[in-house]
Simulated assay, not measured.
Amino acid sequence: MELYFLGTGAGMPTRLRNVTSVALSLMQERGTVWLFDAGEGTQQQMLRSPVKPGKLEFLFLTHLHGDHLYGVPGLLTSRSYQGGESPLTVFGPPGTRRFVETTLDVSGAHLDYELRIAEIGEGIVYEDDGFVVTAAKLEHRIDSYGYRIVEKDTPGALDSARLAAEGYRPGPLFARLKRGETVTMPDGRTIDGNDYLGASLKGRTVCVFGDTRPCGSELALARGADVLVHEATYMHEKADNAHKYYHTTATQAASLAAEAGVGALILTHLSSRYQDESVHRLLEEARAIFPNSHVAEDFWSFRVTRRA
């Protein structure tokens, strides 16, 4: 599991930062990539990255402002040209369907894959055997959501050696024991599979938030996450601007990370006023409160590890 940042700027592209888009690579876990937002030029950023459009499984939109959205039509159509054939689901706030279907219809776009659109509200927006994704509304000028991606715990390994020592050979019953079922063995003995499983492997949790002022729903969504990706449009000296325009400062994001007990904080969505040396000042501001803070750069990646 790895985060890869395709765009880390706010509002408009600069010479160093494209507008917002971050990929969550799950190639080892499920052979796919999940994308969060797709600002203008996202498909061009992909050409300079290891992220392949054909591997996209889900696109999660945090909100419908242009710097998070305008790259969607081009990305969807290019995916067909680049061999993408598997279904792709776009999750986003109400209005997502109208935007996507209108732009594709007006431009006469043709897709060689099934496109699914799911307009979300608060609560669980996706769940399968491996992951659950929850959304919560944040505080911005339009509806903006944060996403909490939880990898479910992996059951421990089956102690096949112990079963062999007790006279049992591998077979279909071992698969049931692996699932923790209670099984009657060929000799009539009843065995609880949980008694033969090692310790489970704790799943990882990643939170990716859209644009927001500090608000109560952030804390509940971020609690205990291994990694929190949060906007830091301003340094704290511009706190009044942040509040006026419904954004967050580096100090506020770091304070949230500390209170929520996250493992690592990654700051993104930086105002164009922060270039070169001023970015280091922004990072120092965050680390004064939450030491394990990072500022994302375009084409920078962060491996999500399991905490002890």
Rank of each mutant, 00 (worst) to 15 (best):
S200Q: 08
R141A: 05
S217Y: 04
R307Q: 15
E151P: 07
H236C: 09
V106G: 06
A250W: 02
D211G: 08
R176A: 08
E297P: 05
G188C: 02
S217Q: 07
E114G: 09
T102M: 12
T249D: 09
S217I: 05
G146K: 05
T233G: 10
R116H: 04
L197D: 07
I266Y: 12
D105W: 04
A175C: 11
T305I: 09
W300S: 10
P214M: 11
K202G: 15
F302P: 06
R204D: 13
S272N: 13
T103L: 13
D159V: 01
T248H: 10
P186C: 14
R273A: 09
L59F: 05
H230R: 12
A157K: 01
E114T: 11
L201G: 07
V304Q: 06
T205G: 07
T42P: 04
P87W: 07
G198T: 08
Y81K: 14
N241W: 09
F131R: 03
D187K: 02
A199C: 04
R148C: 02
T32K: 14
T14F: 08
T184S: 11
D192Y: 07
A308Q: 01
V100C: 15
H247K: 15
A286D: 10
L64M: 06
Q252P: 10
T251Y: 11
S78W: 13
G210I: 06
Q45H: 11
N194M: 07
Y196F: 08
G84A: 12
G156V: 01
A136N: 15
H269T: 08
L69Y: 03
G263A: 11
K52I: 04
G261A: 06
D129C: 14
R169D: 15
K152E: 14
R141C: 06
D143C: 04
A136R: 12
D112P: 06
T184C: 15
L256F: 04
E122T: 13
C207G: 12
Y274A: 01
G203V: 02
L111A: 04
T251W: 10
L61F: 02
P73Y: 11
L104K: 04
M27Y: 09
G9V: 06
R97S: 10
P93S: 06
R79F: 02
R189Q: 03
G216C: 09
L3Y: 00
G203Q: 10
T134Y: 03
A286F: 09
A242C: 09
S80P: 11
E85P: 05
L16N: 08
S200E: 13
A23E: 10
Y168G: 15
I149T: 00
E57W: 11
G41D: 00
I266D: 12
L24I: 13
L115N: 05
E237W: 12
E85Y: 15
D128N: 13
E277P: 02
L221I: 11
A253V: 01
E284Q: 09
Y81F: 15
G193Y: 06
L256W: 03
G263R: 14
M12A: 14
V208T: 08
Y81P: 03
